[in-house]
């Protein structure tokens, strides 16, 4: 129906061309046109954080970001973080701490946490809680997630 528009994106280090409906959000384009699925649609309103990705290294809500605005910027999702040491450490601590239950929030939380450790390699618990306050988790009660981020930071500092 609506006209498709061709965009070129830098996604997880690769240049991709994608035809996506005018006005499509990055979340829609990634999911429907590119099958990049780690970012989830939890609310589509910018509240839950499940769709968090990195643009030029900064966490953003893919559901609030127009695909057209991403041209010329580097988009990174969990699929593209295989070689990232900070992320690998965070992932390991999340697996071990019990910070993963249903997992729907997990990718967004890890991306927010990675950004925090980038800015503040030795965050206090309060700083971790503030950094994650835009990512809703309905399962864990947050305690084990905060534990995981703190212990990952400690390990990375060694």
């Amino acid at each position: 129906m609506s006209k498709k528009i061709l965009h070129s994106l830098n996604l997880n280090g690769e240049e991709v061309e994608v035809a996506t409906p005018a006005g499509a959000t990055l979340l829609e384009t990634m999911r429907e046109d590119l099958r990049i699925l780690s970012a989830k649609r939890g609310c589509n309103q910018g509240v839950c954080g499940a769709c968090t990705v990195l643009i030029d290294g900064k966490p953003v809500r893919a559901c609030l970001t127009l695909t057209a605005r991403c041209e010329g910027h580097a988009v990174q999702t969990m699929e593209g973080m295989g070689g990232d040491r900070v992320m690998a450490t965070l992932q390991r601590h999340m697996v071990e701490s019990g910070g993963v239950q249903c997992g729907f929030c997990t990718s967004g939380i890890l991306i927010s946490a990675r950004e925090l450790l980038e800015e503040d390699p030795a965050p206090s618990r309060a700083a971790v809680k503030t950094a994650l306050s835009g990512n809703i988790c309905r399962c864990t009660g947050y305690r084990t997630i905060v534990d995981a981020v703190c212990s990952a930071a400690e390990e990375l500092a060694q």
């Binding site: 999911r31 099958r35 699925l37 780690s38 970012a39 989830k40 649609r41 999702t77 969990m78 699929e79 965070l90 992932q91 999340m94 697996v95 071990e96 019990g98 993963v100 997992g103 729907f104 997990t106 990718s107 890890l110």
Partner: peptide, 23 residues
């Protein structure tokens, strides 16, 4: 024993498939 759930791994890697992820 507090064995870590095996599904945690695919979840932290963003690879777990939920209903919206099926095509």
């Amino acid at each position: 024993k507090s064995i870590a759930k095996p599904d945690n791994l695919e979840k932290v890697q963003g690879r777990a498939e939920y209903i919206a992820d099926l095509y």
